[in-house]
Simulated assay, not measured.
Amino acid sequence: MNNSLPVVLVHGFWHGSWCWNPVVERLAARGVPSVAVDLEGHGLRGPAPRARWARPFDAASFATEPSPVAAVTASSAAAVLAEQIRTVGGGQPVLVVAHSMGGVVATAVAELVPELVAGLVYVSAFAPVSGAPAGYYNTCPENAGEMVSRHLAADPMVVGAARIDFGDPERRDQVKETFYNDVDDRTADATIALLSTDGPAGIPLEPLTVTQERYGSVPHAYVVCGRDNVIPATLQYRFVKEIDTVSATPTEVTELDCSHSPFLSQPDALAEAIVAAGRRGVRAG
Rank of each mutant, 00 (worst) to 15 (best):
N21T: 11
N143D: 10
L81K: 07
E242H: 08
E242V: 08
V158H: 13
A54R: 15
A144Y: 01
I164G: 00
A284E: 14
R227L: 09
A82E: 14
V69M: 06
W53Q: 11
L95Y: 04
A98W: 05
L152T: 00
R50P: 00
A28M: 04
G43M: 08
A132K: 14
F62A: 12
V230A: 14
H15K: 04
F62L: 14
A28N: 13
Q266W: 00
R283W: 03
V105C: 07
G199P: 00
V175T: 09
M101H: 07
A106H: 05
T197L: 03
P22I: 07
P56D: 08
A190M: 09
V210C: 12
A162P: 00
A51S: 15
D182C: 04
S124D: 13
A29P: 02
D228W: 07
D189W: 00
A201Y: 15
D268Q: 14
V175N: 01
S76C: 09
S67Y: 08
V240I: 12
F57Q: 03
A106L: 06
F13P: 00
E255D: 07
I243A: 02
A98R: 04
V218H: 12
G135H: 08
A110C: 13
V8K: 10
L256H: 09
T245R: 15
E272C: 05
H42Y: 12
A106N: 04
R214P: 05
P47C: 06
T87C: 04
A79V: 10
Y122M: 11
T254Q: 08
R150N: 02
F57V: 04
R279D: 13
A110M: 03
E115R: 13
T209I: 06
L194I: 00
V97P: 03
P133R: 06
D257M: 12
E213H: 09
H15N: 08
S247E: 02
A154K: 10
T191S: 13
T64D: 07
I231Y: 06
D189C: 01
A134Y: 04
L256M: 04
R227H: 14
L116N: 05
